[in-house]
């Protein structure tokens, strides 16, 4: 194990307490949905989640809502992070939530949305069951911390 610096040691011990509490890794699906080709953010968050000790499954670009649902159900993820920069969140997110409902996965999946979501659209998404919306400028640490604190107990 690499414990070359204090920082490493820190994240190590953090990880250990984490696994001691849960005795398992947090599984995340990072999903790009719809006609939106901007995946730099999804890549950055995938990498950051990995470094935080999570298991990350990345969906790839241009997925349909039911494809995201399929992956989320089969992979039994704790966290579904949907990245949307196209502005179609108000139609795509509800479809995903309905799909999760259909497979009984809505209750215990932490759904996050990242991207450019106008303030006036937020309440609607939250009503749909989205746990948090991370807009531009959100720090990665903040997101990771949120996932650690809110990943569902099963």
């Amino acid at each position: 194990m690499g414990m070359s610096s204090d920082q490493d040691e820190d994240s190590q011990s953090q990880h250990h307490t984490q696994t001691a509490e849960r005795d398992r890794s947090i599984r995340c699906l990072v999903a790009k949905v719809g006609l939106d080709g901007h995946d730099r953010g999804a890549h950055v968050i995938s990498r950051a989640f990995r470094d935080a000790g999570f298991e990350v499954i990345y969906s790839g670009l241009h997925k349909a809502p039911d494809e995201i649902v399929q992956a989320a159900v089969q992979e039994d993820v704790d966290v579904l992070g949907i990245s949307i920069l196209s502005g179609a969140h108000d139609t795509l997110v509800p479809k995903i939530m309905d799909g999760l409902e259909e497979y009984g996965a809505r209750e215990d999946t932490l759904v996050l949305v990242g991207g450019v979501i106008p303030d006036e659209d937020r309440p609607e998404l939250e009503d749909e069951g989205v746990a948090a919306i991370f807009g531009p400028g959100t720090s990665i640490e903040e997101t990771i911390e949120f996932v650690r604190e809110n990943a569902p107990e099963r």
Binding site: E55, V56, I57, Y58, E67
Partner: peptide
Amino acid sequence: SPFTGGAVLGDRIRMASTIGDMDVFVRSMS
């Protein structure tokens, strides 16, 4: 990762031909 235990499980991206077909059950493991 042997250091953080984290992983990016990327095989699923390549499995696009059968996507949407629930009779193909893909599970990524680290």
